[in-house]
């Protein structure tokens, strides 16, 4: 069953065509790596799929819901880890997770906070103001908020940014584990190693156009790694 479906999806900003006629299908249970060079349109696609932006033309459905008509409903059902957002400055992580739990209607939020602070090793930071956290710690907080309600579909944009190698490994393992529980992850990145290690499927976007989509193995030619395949397709 497809959880993301787009047809001729386009978005332009004044004279810039950020996304052009995008036909994309992501099936349930995939860890879909959406890769492309800087400025290729990856973040714009996430923003369109989660109703943060309205398309110029074309259609899209996320878990059977139109994000243009029902952006709130889509965002209720999915988790989103934005690339550039920090947690609110004057909350502590503990308060912020409670805030997210309140907005999302999560019942057992305290248990989940315990579980996550254990997993990402920041129990001692739970009562510090977010504004005083390091960039890596802020990123951990943002990762947690995206997964806190255990959504069936999560959009994550450059999840490993600012994280140390130990933490990167923990997150990577968690992503694979999450997918194995029949959940879907839409991972936007330009870090080829990450995509190569964890993704089951890949979509490559360049200049707003989808240049290739398929299983990880299908994207690569014989004796080729993902970086080489990417460079061949994107040129």
């Amino acid at each position: 069953m497809s959880v993301i479906e787009t047809k001729n999806l386009s978005k332009s900003f004044e004279d810039v065509e950020a996304v052009e006629d995008l036909d994309l299908t992501v099936e349930e249970g995939q860890l879909f790596g959406f890769i492309g060079p800087n400025g290729a349109g990856k973040t714009t696609v996430i923003n369109l799929l989660t109703g943060q932006l309205k398309p110029s033309s074309g259609d899209c459905e996320v878990m059977g819901i139109d994000p243009v008509k029902e952006p709130k409903e889509v965002r209720k059902r999915v988790g989103i880890l934005p690339e550039r957002e920090d947690p609110p400055s004057f909350f502590t992580p503990q308060e912020y997770f409670e805030f997210v739990g309140n907005i999302r209607g999560i019942q057992d939020v305290d248990e989940k906070i315990d579980e996550w602070s254990e997993r990402l090793k920041f129990k001692d930071k739970l009562n510090k103001l977010n504004k005083d956290l390091s960039k890596g710690e802020k990123q951990k907080v943002m990762v947690v908020q995206a997964f806190l309600h255990e959504p069936d579909l999560v959009f994550i944009d450059e999840p490993l940014i600012n994280l140390d190698p130990v933490m990167q490994e923990i997150i990577k393992n968690y992503l694979v584990e999450y997918m194995e529980n029949d959940k879907t992850i839409f991972l936007s990145t330009h870090v080829m190693n990450l995509a190569n290690e964890v993704c089951s499927h890949i979509g490559i976007i360049d200049n707003g156009r989808l240049v290739k989509q398929g299983k990880l193995k299908e994207i690569k030619e014989e004796n080729e790694d993902l970086t080489e395949a990417f460079l061949r397709l994107v040129k």
């Binding site: 909350f91 502590t92 503990q94 308060e95 409670e98 805030f99 309140n102 009562n127 510090k128 103001l129 005083d132 956290l133």
Partner: peptide
Amino acid sequence: IKSRRKENAFKDLT
């Protein structure tokens, strides 16, 4: 600026 710790005020406010 020292890293500041805060008591959980959100829970009471909500």
